[in-house]
């Protein structure tokens, strides 16, 4: 068993929303990473079966995307932005401070497995520089003192941020009776009714 029962059910639902199962690959990898904190070989093999790909194709695709991990990272992944707007307001100094205060190199994980510090590219909070994300949740205008406080809060479990791998806390779900219907492209060659009807009206 490599995906929990709940995740197996979730995976089946997600696959049903795409005209081709392979399109569900990235969402399913996220599901696995939320479950285990990183992508296990077992989960990738199971996902390969589910989307009709080989395990090598799954790993080869996952490896293209920076967020997917093949080994455990800290409970909290701290991404400090140093791209241009943050550079102008001390992003590099903030990254340096983060590494010093947690006693890790960039990319390293603290001995207790709590924190991994990485250098991020632009995370789209440029006016709030210098900024960072903890498990992809934003903190803006972060001074070194703010950073230390944030680490304290995270250690104490006060920051309200889930462990690495969890992204949205709300998932999309479509009630079966509300789904318009998803079919492979080769089964949807007709113009949709509202468009077809309009054409008839236009002719009239």
């Amino acid at each position: 068993m490599t995906l929990s029962d709940a995740n197996e059910a979730q995976a089946a639902e997600i696959i049903g929303w795409f005209p081709r199962p392979r399109s569900a690959l990235i969402p399913l990898l996220h599901l696995a990473q939320a479950q285990d904190g990183y992508l296990t070989d077992g989960a990738m093999r199971r996902i390969a079966e589910l989307v009709g790909a080989t395990p090598a194709e799954v790993k080869g695709t996952a490896g293209f995307y920076e967020m997917f991990r093949f080994e455990p990272v800290g409970t909290y992944l701290v991404n400090v932005c140093t791209n241009i707007s943050c550079l102008l307001w001390g992003g590099e100094e903030l990254l340096e401070h983060a590494c010093e205060s947690l006693d890790v190199e960039v990319g390293g994980t603290t001995d207790d497995g709590m924190f991994t510090v990485e250098e991020a590219e632009c995370i789209a909070a440029c006016t709030e520089a210098p900024c960072l994300q903890v498990n992809y949740r934003y903190r803006g205008r972060v001074t070194p003192a703010d950073f230390d406080r944030l680490i304290e809060d995270l250690r104490a479990g006060r920051a309200g941020i889930a462990g690495h791998g969890v992204l949205a806390q709300v998932r999309q779900s479509i009630p079966a009776e509300r789904l318009a219907g998803v079919v492979p492209p080769e089964q949807a060659r007709e113009a949709p009714v509202w468009l077809a009807r309009n054409d008839v009206e236009a002719v009239r």
């Binding site: 929303w17 990235i26 969402p27 920076e66 997917f68 999309q172 318009a180 219907g181 509202w194």
Partner: peptide, 14 residues
């Protein structure tokens, strides 16, 4: 008789 499914997909850092 207008029916559309909107599905959220999301990336992984690229």
């Amino acid at each position: 008789d207008f029916s559309v499914d909107i599905v959220m997909a999301w990336g992984a850092g690229a």
